[in-house]
Structure formats: C-alpha cells, structure tokens
Amino acid sequence: MEYVSPEGLRIDGRRPMEMRKLHAEMGVVAKADGSAVFVMGNTKVIAAVYGPREVQNRSQQMSDQALVRCEYSMANFSTGDRMRKGKGDRRSTEISLVVRQTMEACILTHLMPRSQIDIYVQVLQADGGTRCACINAATLALADAAIPMRDLVTSCSAGYLNSTPLLDLNYVEDSAGGPDVTVGILPKMDKVTLLQMDSKLPIDTFDNVMQLAIEGCKAVATYIREVLLENTKQLEYHRGV
C-alpha cells in the first residue's frame, strides 16, 4: 500500500514531518486533584491525578518517597469496532507500566514521603499514538495537581514507511506493520526517558527516525508549556490579591 503519495502527502493529507493538530484542556475532572484532556488529531485521552494522598495499602507505604500508581484503560467506544475487553489485558497492563515508569522518573517522589499518587488515563478516541497522548495528558494532569517534577515529560512517535520517516503515525500507518518508534523526552534536561520500537530498522535510518520523534516531542513540549502558563495565569488573575 502507498503511505506517501508521489506528491509527498500522507493518507490523511499531512506532510511526512507534520504533526497532527494538538489541543489540550486542564481541569476537566472536578473531583480530581489534577486533570487534563489531550488531543492529537483524532486521538483523545483524558487523565486524572489523585494525590499525594494517604497510602491505601499500608504495606506499600514507603517512608522516604511517594508511591506512584498508574492505570490505563481504553473506553469501549474508543475504537471503530466496539470491543469488550476486561481490565488487565496484556496491552493495557504494559501501557500502565510504561506510563508509570515514565512519570515516576520525573516526579520528585522524595518530597512526598508516605503518600501515594494515582494517575488514571483513559483513551476516549483511539487513532494511533495513544501511548504518547497518554504520557502527554499525564504530564499536564500532574502539573495541574502541582506535584513537583524535575521536568515535563513529552512523548511523540515516528515511523518509517515507503522509505520515508513519518512523524506522529495515525492508526492506518501504525497498523501497516512498519517500524514505530515511540520516544519520551525531558525537554529542558534534554534526556530520553522512554524509547520503544516495534519491528526493525537499520541503525542509520533509526537515527533519523528517532531525531524526528524528538523534534515532535519538543513541539509538544512547547505547546504544553503554553497551555500550562495560560492556565496558571488565569487562576492567578481570578483569585486576585
């Protein structure tokens, strides 16, 4: 199948190095300490953060740092064909783990000893790149809950189809079976915290694809930063002196 037309356009009309439209909203769950919706094109993810709060299971309590938990789920209506999958299938367990580890790496857990932070992410619409959208939404929700972090974490994916590196794959491109590189970075510190890849790539091409994904992450970071700053300003203006 042809994923990049001779004119250099992808199936959804984007250029190879073009991202989908980003949109983010904060404070969407009233009862949560922090929450956000993150939209990348047709992928839409909601994240809610509770905590730092008392540890529910006393035996898991740590006296020098906070416990971070994460639960990923996919709404039944999020995909084209309505699938009924219970909680805890392999895919969602894996993504829960990935999101947890990525977020734990940037949260300053030692500042909140003997407490627990719960991150719930749910995919409302799935169109490829749900993993990246989840991480981005979780970052926003954590920042909304004012949980201290080393840096923001942003994530973006890139692939390689028809001998062209493609940024931010959608579902059709994702299911083409080609290589799919998901990268998560700490933009300010310039460090990689997450790197996953399906299938294989020659090392020199891999470099290009990963560089492209990192550029994507940086673009996401710029956007997230704008949203956060605007949100903080609004809160401060409303509160008054």
């Binding site: 840096d151 923001l152 956060l228």
Partner: peptide, 16 residues
C-alpha cells in the same frame, strides 16, 4: 485580568 496583570506581571512560571 487587566487589573491584576499590572501588579504582578511575568511572575507566573510552569514546570522547568
């Protein structure tokens, strides 16, 4: 917004 932005401009920061 216009009332408070004069008093405390550019003091808002985000993570990092």
């Amino acid at each position: 917004e216009s009332l408070s932005s004069k008093a405390n401009s550019n003091a808002s920061v985000t993570v990092a």
